[in-house]
């Protein structure tokens, strides 16, 4: 199989074993929106935020890098992240999506759809600790 670039974390490779907050083990390609939501509900520190894709641009530094701008949470804070084009995000109700799904499937064998403006991704923030 193809070598995974060092910049891509190993847990996105198809077949990787993921432990949910309740201890259940699932393969990365089998994860559902509910798995993330329920895990965050159990977590004492993390909460799920909705992050809407507002813009996707190429990077000046590398053709394999994209800059994705999100609008995060109810305050619609603007956050930009620079990622490899094959880096997968989890879209609510849809599953893994990336800027270049063909590359994601090729490199990670992870089934993936095209990340588009307007998609709502799962992201994490800290719960308010009192």
């Amino acid at each position: 199989s193809a070598a995974v670039p060092p910049s891509l974390p190993p847990y996105f490779i198809k077949g990787s074993i993921i432990q949910l907050a309740d201890g259940e083990l699932k393969r990365v390609e089998d994860l559902k929106t509910e798995d993330f939501i329920q895990s965050a509900e159990i977590s004492s520190e993390l909460k799920i935020d909705s992050s809407t894709v507002e813009r996707i641009e190429g990077s000046h530094t590398s053709p394999n890098v994209a800059v994705v701008q999100f609008s995060v949470g109810e305050h619609r804070a603007q956050v930009s992240v620079e990622v490899m084009v094959e880096y997968p995000f989890f879209v609510f109700g849809q599953g893994w999506s990336s800027c270049c799904p063909d590359r994601t499937t090729q490199l990670l064998e992870l089934p993936c759809t095209k990340l588009s403006v307007g998609d709502v991704c799962i992201s994490l923030t800290l719960k308010n600790l009192r």
């Binding site: 847990y11 074993i17 993921i18 993330f36 949470g73 804070a77 992201s123 994490l124």
Partner: peptide
């Protein structure tokens, strides 16, 4: 076989809170 925690798969996007 390595086991990864669920939260490592999710980007941590922390907006600056003004309140």
């Amino acid at each position: 076989v390595p086991v990864f925690p669920w939260h490592s798969l999710v980007p941590f996007l922390a907006p600056t809170q003004s309140d």
